[in-house]
């Protein structure tokens, strides 16, 4: 699946998107896998309360299933308007 990062999550991880091959069942499982990769991921995902997630471009939560999902995005709380 494609994993996208926005705003400071993108800056901390150092890339806007990447292709991830995973068996993670939920968003939270995917976060655990990413955290284990490298420090920059561990830092970006250190406080999940500061993060929001979208699954296939719909706002979701960390318990959301990744079954059949093509795109997951992580970002800080939005500041539109």
């Amino acid at each position: 699946m494609d994993v996208l990062y926005f705003a400071w999550v993108r800056e901390r991880i150092g890339l806007p998107r990447e292709r991830v091959v995973t068996d993670a069942a939920t968003v939270a499982d995917l976060v655990e896998e990413l955290r284990a990769r490298e420090d920059r991921y561990a830092i970006a995902f250190s406080d999940l309360s500061a993060l929001r997630v979208a699954v296939d471009q719909d706002l979701a939560d960390f318990g959301t299933s990744l079954d059949g999902v093509r795109e997951v995005a992580f970002f800080p709380p939005m500041t539109g308007g």
Binding site: M78, T79, G80
Partner: peptide, 14 residues
């Protein structure tokens, strides 16, 4: 519309 797009539309300001 304003209240929703402030915190539910995917924009980030720097």
């Amino acid at each position: 519309l304003m209240d929703y797009l402030k915190s539910r539309a995917p924009f980030w300001k720097k």
